[in-house]
Computed example of a mutant assay.
Amino acid sequence: MKAELRELETATAIGHRMQHPGRVRPMELGDIPAVSSLFSKIFRKRDIEPSGDLRQYLEAVFFGSPLYSPEHGSIVYDDGTIASAILALPMEFSIHGRHTVGKLLCAFMSDGKAGAVGAACLARTMRSARQDMCFSDNSSPVSADHWVAGGGVVLPIQSLEWQRSFRPATSSAIRASRQFPALGSKLVLGVLGAFDRVLRWRRPSVKPTPASGCMTKVIGAGEFLGCARPMMERFSVRPVWSTEEFDWLVAIAGKNQGLGEVHFRQVTADGRAIGVFLFLGRANRTATVLNVLCQPGREFEVTAEMFACLDREGYAQATGAAQPFLMNAISRQRWLTFRHRGYFCMVTRHGDLKDAALRNDLYIGGLASESWSRLLTDF
């Protein structure tokens, strides 16, 4: 009886697939329950009903952008069920003066044999011959190999994350709390804070040295944007950051309360702006720096003043994605380390964009990345 039942189930499944030939199509709002379940199963190893919070977040992020359209959004493989999907977020870039909507790929999901065919079909759509600009800043080694096989490139510097400790004992406990949550309690961090005060007194090099003649001041989103746009013009490839898109990105990044509030700062010298930076910060814990920009030649002053500012504001540590134009200045810091955070990969059918990427003549930055996404830390 059981064998007959299995044969009947197999025949039914085959018949169902014949009635519903598989195809790659844009993700729709009605797919969110299935995609949420797929995300939970693949990335959280939980084959349970996903939370309403996850569904709402997926809708807000992947359908809420002012740039959203079906052709620039996420895609799924539909054969009657959804067992494979790619989550993608549209972002507008200037490429040698022309405006292009690129895609930040945030998650590639496939469930076992049922999703294998779909995953292959989805991967083929990501080949360079078919894409204006697709990129990811958090790819695994296997995924990076697929990107290269599809005609893409891997950018090694942008694949790194820097971390600067201001209060080393507290910073170490915060990092370890990912595996041992008790180490992140207020009690433990309070005790370690006392140890850090002694360490900072005995080892002055722990404290970053501010840039001579520079000051940092708090600014709003509008003033940040007004300073940042001309500072990005040195790059052939850069975000457009229309006011509407920028405000939406800042708002959606601010939903990650685990990383803290959104902050904007301006670095000045002789009364005029020479740099700006944007970060998410949790008091007494971590400042996650998303974007740092400056006038050409002011990299050392701006980064030195940025670290000094974050130290003065009481953060235990600061982290951010490496950028080629800042590497020399960032690397001069004491108590700073680099780690591989995931491969930064890109595919494009445009030769001038690929050439600019290989020459590091592009600026992406943390707002155009997964750094702020709750999909990396929550649910």
Results as ranks from 00 to 15, higher is better:
V267N: 01
S110M: 09
F344E: 04
M1V: 12
K186Q: 12
A120L: 12
S51Q: 02
F277A: 00
S171G: 11
S159C: 00
E244A: 06
L278M: 14
C134P: 00
R265A: 01
V188P: 05
A283F: 13
K217M: 15
P70F: 10
Y68L: 03
E301G: 14
I252R: 08
E233W: 06
M232Y: 11
Q317F: 05
G112E: 01
D311L: 04
W248P: 09
T216N: 08
T286M: 09
D31L: 05
A114C: 00
T125Q: 04
I75G: 01
W248V: 05
K2W: 07
C294D: 03
W201C: 13
R265W: 00
V206K: 02
L310C: 12
R175H: 01
A60R: 08
H16R: 11
P21Y: 02
E28R: 09
F135Y: 14
G184D: 04
A368W: 15
A3R: 08
R229Y: 10
G184E: 10
I364W: 11
W162V: 01
G366Q: 14
Q295A: 12
I330S: 03
R197E: 11
A3Q: 07
P50F: 08
S143P: 00
S212L: 12
S139G: 07
N291I: 07
R298I: 01
C121Y: 02
F180S: 08
S205C: 08
G297K: 02
I330L: 13
H263C: 13
F39K: 06
G97K: 03
D196V: 06
R46S: 10
W162M: 02
D352C: 00
R349L: 01
Q131D: 00
F279I: 07
N328V: 04
F279C: 14
D111N: 04
V237D: 05
S140R: 10
S185I: 07
L278S: 05
S165W: 08
F325R: 04
P168T: 01
V206S: 06
R238G: 04
S143H: 05
A356H: 03
W335S: 15
F264E: 10
E233G: 07
C214M: 06
R332G: 10
G275N: 06
D31G: 03
Q323W: 08
W241H: 13
D111A: 12
S140G: 06
G118C: 11
D53A: 11
G254D: 15
V302R: 08
E223P: 05
A34T: 07
V250M: 12
